[in-house]
Each structure stands twice: as C-alpha cells, then as structure tokens.
C-alpha cells in the first residue's frame, strides 16, 4: 500500500507541559489532507491518549503518523519500562499513573481501553525492560 504521508514526533518522559502538541499537529496535518468528521476525532482522541501515556508512563518514545490512501496509522513506540500485565493494563479503571498525572485530570485507567475503542484496528506489544509498541489503524472509507 502506497504511503502518502508520514511524520514522527518525539515525546519526552514527564514533559507534561508539551503533552498534546504532537496530537494537535497530527490533527492539523490530517485536516489539511482532507480527513474530517468522526475519523478525525477518533484519531485525535487516540493520539492524545497514547501521547499522554508516553509522557506519563514511558521513558520517552516516538509517535508516528502514517497516512495511506484508505487508512490512517498511528504507531507509538517507547524505550521502556514495558507493561508486565497487558490484560490488567487494558482493564478500564486500572491505572499506575502518578500524582502529577492525576492532578492534571488523567490517570483514570481509561487510556488504553479508549484507544482500542476509537481505533478500527489495535495492537499492543510490550516487553518489560525493552518497551511497548502500540499500532492503531483507522479506516478512511467514505472520507
């Protein structure tokens, strides 16, 4: 499948001030390309959730936007610490977020389930001590 557009953003650990900038940029880029409506909102929400996860939980990582003719792909890849129990992490309400994240209104244990709900395709792979990679696909039918 032909890659029409790609862009990567580095997301730093614990950078709560900038958290959301990458997602805002992703949303702007997609809007310019002509993606709109429900798909744009679902990509934006999932992107913001995954970006916040990188800031709150990871040691830092990259968020990549790939646009294909019929789908938008978001890939979040970090360098650790990895998730020991993926099943538990996917459970609504389960959270290991710190006080800082909670004081900003996050860490309610909704992030991963919300990403899965918004994406048409969702895949998460994690190895403790190595890192976590989340791949999300959003179909562009009728967009």
């Amino acid at each position: 499948m032909e890659l029409m557009f790609t862009e990567s953003y580095h997301v730093a650990r614990a950078d709560y001030t900038s958290a959301g900038h990458a997602s805002a940029s992703i949303k702007r880029q997609l809007k310019q390309i002509g993606v709109g409506g429900d798909v744009l909102r679902r990509v934006a929400v999932a992107s913001y959730e995954v970006e916040l996860n990188l800031v709150i939980h990871s040691l830092g990582g990259d968020l990549t936007l790939n646009v294909y003719p019929d789908c938008v792909e978001l890939i979040s890849s970090d360098t650790g610490p990895g998730i020991p129990d993926l099943k538990l992490a996917m459970k609504e309400g389960y959270s290991t977020a710190n006080e800082m994240a909670r004081s900003l209104g996050f860490g309610a244990g909704m992030g991963l389930p919300n990403m899965k709900r918004n994406a048409d395709e969702f895949d998460i792979k994690s190895t403790v001590g190595v890192g976590t990679t989340i791949t999300m696909g959003f179909h562009l039918r009728g967009n």
Binding site: A24, A44, V45, Y48
Partner: peptide
Amino acid sequence: EKTVLITGLTNPHVVRTSEML
C-alpha cells in the same frame, strides 16, 4: 463534539482535551 464541558480544572489540558474532541 456538541457537548458543553463543565469543570473546575483550569490547566492547559482542559483546552487540549476540548481541541481533540
């Protein structure tokens, strides 16, 4: 998107969350 958000939280993420939605 057709929703009003009522909150007592006043940090930049309230606006960023609104922007995403």
